[in-house]
């Protein structure tokens, strides 16, 4: 009988019974459609090849284990497996993005060592200077708590021991210091961004 005329269902059942050439006919019959389907999603020949291979490995395992329910829908079932594997591929790639250094895109344009350039350094020193000047305008108690916390990196417990006030009072002074700093920023119309 001509292999073209044999239905998918017959080929599948022959394959389950051990007829290996039936698989070859099934693959050859659907390879182009399945391959194009995968390629239309991933746009990469190598990935398409991998997903195509994984799809048929899953098909082979399911058929050999006898877990396939024949409902005359072999191709939609294979397409569904491929679709799920494509989703898996994109999920994996989201966790571990792949950068292709091809064409105009250069990976080093988005990677930096974190160091500021000359302009950034200037702006940063200006910001530091402005903040220092505003801290000087704060009431003495608030200023001392803020300096100890932010510049000397002391805990509120250490600040309370150092100034002889309770931790709650130190926290309150810090809070008012920040509120007053915000007011000063608005008053002087200062922009504190780099």
């Amino acid at each position: 009988m001509n292999s073209q005329s044999i239905s998918d269902a017959t080929l599948v059942s022959q394959y389950i019974q051990g007829d290996e050439p039936s698989l070859s006919i099934l693959i050859k019959r659907h390879q182009q459609r399945l391959y194009s389907f995968i390629y239309s999603k991933v746009y990469d020949r190598d990935v398409t090849e991998d997903v195509f291979q994984d799809t048929f490995i899953k098909v082979i395992r399911t058929l050999k284990r006898g877990n396939y329910n024949e409902e005359g829908k072999f191709l939609p079932w294979v397409m569904r497996i491929a679709h799920n594997l494509v989703i898996d591929h994109f999920r994996k790639n989201n966790r571990m993005p792949k950068f292709n250094n091809s064409g105009d895109f250069d990976i080093f344009s988005v990677l930096s060592d974190g160091a500021l350039n000359a302009e950034g350094e200037l702006v940063k020193s200006q910001i530091v200077h402005d903040v220092r000047a505003m801290v000087e305008e704060l009431p003495e108690e608030q200023k001392s708590v803020l300096v100890m916390r932010m510049y000397n990196d002391m805990s509120f417990k250490e600040i309370s021991e150092n100034t002889g006030v309770s931790i709650n009072t130190a926290l309150g002074r810090m809070r008012y210091a920040l509120i007053n700093l915000r007011k000063l920023i608005e008053k002087h119309n200062i922009v504190l961004t780099n």
Partner: peptide
């Protein structure tokens, strides 16, 4: 758009 012959052979 077709898979490589090696892929088909591997599967078989």
């Amino acid at each position: 758009l077709k898979p490589k012959t090696e892929t088909i052979n591997f599967l078989l």
